[in-house]
Design a binder for these strands. Structure first.
Length: 506
RNA sequence: GGCCCGUUCGUCUAAGGGCUAGGACACCACCCUUUCACGGUGGUGAUACGAGUUCGAAUCUCGUACGGGCUACCA
């Protein structure tokens, strides 16, 4: 049996968005499930749109998600090079072969001539005429020119492309793992350019040649490729490689509020669409990524996997290991799924709650550090994380939920305290300071016990004292249970904060 | 316009001819908690429409409507 090999082929022209990463994810899961290879190939043949640094960015994203490929420009396997620009000659060879075998032809039409053609043939019922069997005999190509003319043009280095010659009246059948059989009439597909005038291949040629040469067994890509699938199928056939053709699966699209999810949606609706921060090279705009927004990679992978797939049970929280075991391409939906940021946040919340304290240490301390809080005592930090993690939806929430452990309040929510503040309550806290000094075991339950006993002795409801106590410790009506806060703060700090607040309350 | 794909609560989805169409997010109410959350209990809410096949249709077939994608020397 053939070893499973899947590939992902990003183009370094933009950020890696949700749909792209989900495609990587499904590729990755499938490969790992079958002990196969996961190959990353870079589609950089469109030099005009190439963004320097985008390749590194893609690798960083994959690393953060834990979806690193076995073979790529960075981890060479036996089928390199892995950048299409470095395989230029290869594609040319096969394109020429197709011409020789009569499956493709040279076309000398200039962009301007194509423009004229589209304009002239445009009608009410056909707003976008294609370069197809209907009009190719009206254009300048090796089918309409004589052999001598063609030879002359080629020898003079006239700019030309190679186009596939799509037949008329044939039916191509695509077998898709998700969608079943799809029938296409070859006559309705245009004569796609295979090799561009600059000698670079288009996606159509490259994907077929690379998949063959790299021995790819399964090709998973987005649904937007479905309409050009017949071209690829025919190419496999024309090149004589039909028996090696991979199995196909066209993944449903991830939709935004209106249509295919785009970076516009990110800007407009304020949710991330990229794994990591991405700076638009054209506008210089920063588009925030899931990582920077405060997502755990485990949560990110989890909700992405569930956007278009489920295992048939009611389980929603999956580890990568579980996904690897349970993922089934046949259970991927055929309909597109709208991205719901609220649900994505819920997944993150679940993952933060589920995470061990020690696995959050690094992220939390760097978030605090960014806000100017340097954590020195790891033990102290662990206690804080344990206390507040259930209240954090995003990692960045850790700052709002815990800054008061590191800095005594400068201001107090006096409106919450003043109206009910009495001399009796003031005396209570003065004596509570003494009570605290006598507490041997500084733990939440003992502090609470001492607090309540003292309140009872002074004939004040303990409940009425808790809010002032809270405001004394953190400055306002927020935070975890107040005695837990005191316990984490420590005896000395608690006393100091009460004293400081007592003067502020007068 | 043509071609292709799709359509179950607002959103993600389960149910592959047979209980009252199930779960999750969001929303609402109550409980817990003298902060805010977490948590718990409950609630509102869906098979796009029309035919056909069948004892029986969300499920199969056809049509319509709607949504999406493609229609580049971009991927």
């Amino acid at each position: 049996m053939k070893k499973v090999r899947v590939r992902f082929a990003p183009s370094p022209t933009g950020g890696l968005h949700l749909g792209g990463i989900r495609t990587v994810l499904y590729n990755y899961l499938f490969a790992r499930q079958h002990n196969g290879d996961f190959v990353l190939r870079i589609e950089d043949t469109d030099q005009s749109r190439y963004v320097p640094g985008a390749e590194e960015y893609i690798f960083d994203c994959l690393k953060w998600c834990g979806l690193e490929p076995d073979e790529s420009p960075l981890h060479e396997g036996g089928y390199g090079p892995y950048r299409q620009s470095e395989r230029k000659e290869l594609y040319k060879k096969y394109a020429e072969q197709l011409v020789k075998d009569g499956f493709a032809y040279y076309a000398f039409d200039t962009p301007e001539e194509l423009e004229v053609m589209r304009h002239n043939f445009k009608t009410g019922t056909n707003p976008s005429p294609q370069y197809d069997h209907n009009i190719r005999m009206k254009m300048r190509n090796s089918l309409t020119l004589t052999d001598d003319e063609v030879r002359k043009l080629v020898n003079e280095n006239t700019k030309h492309v190679i186009r596939i010659k799509m037949l008329e009246g044939e039916t191509v059948i695509l077998k898709d793992m998700i969608r079943g059989e799809i029938h296409f009439d070859t006559g309705i597909v245009d004569d796609k350019v295979l090799l561009k005038a600059d000698g670079m291949p288009t996606y159509h040629l490259a994907v077929v040649v690379d998949d063959y040469l790299m021995k790819i067994t399964h090709a998973f890509r987005g649904e937007e490729w479905l309409p050009s699938a017949p071209v690829h199928l025919l190419l496999w056939k024309y090149l004589g490689w039909e028996k090696d053709m991979p199995e196909w699966a066209h993944l449903p699209l991830i939709l935004g509020p209106n249509g295919k999810l785009s970076k516009r949606d990110a800007l407009k609706y304020g949710f991330p669409v990229f794994a990591m921060n991405w700076i638009d090279p054209k506008t210089g705009e920063l588009i925030e990524g899931f990582r920077e927004k405060g997502f755990l990679p485990e949560a990110f992978i989890n909700f992405l996997a569930l956007l278009g797939w489920n295992d048939g049970t009611e389980q929603e929280i999956f580890t990568k290991e579980e996904l690897k075991q349970k993922f089934l391409m046949e259970r991927v939906h055929s309909g597109g799924a709208k991205f719901d940021y609220e649900k994505a946040k819920w997944f993150n919340h679940e993952w933060i709650k589920k995470s061990e304290v020690r696995s959050l240490r690094f992220e939390v301390s760097s978030i605090l550090k960014n806000k100017g809080i340097n954590v020195t005592d790891e033990n102290h930090l662990d206690k804080i994380i344990a206390l507040v993690k259930d209240r954090c939806t995003l990692l960045t929430d850790f700052y709002d939920q815990s800054y008061f452990f590191f800095n005594a309040p400068e201001q107090y929510d006096l409106n919450a305290v003043k109206p009910k503040w009495t001399g009796g309550k003031k005396r209570f806290f003065e004596s509570f300071i003494e009570e605290i000094k006598a507490i041997d075991i500084w733990e939440s339950a003992f502090i609470e016990d001492g607090f309540k006993k003292l309140a009872m002795m002074q004939d004040i409801k303990a409940g009425e004292l808790q809010l002032p106590f809270r405001v004394m410790l953190v400055g306002g009506k927020f935070g975890p249970p107040v005695f837990d806060i005191a316990a984490v703060l420590g005896k000395q700090e608690t006393i100091q904060r009460i004293q400081k607040a007592l003067t502020a309350f007068d």
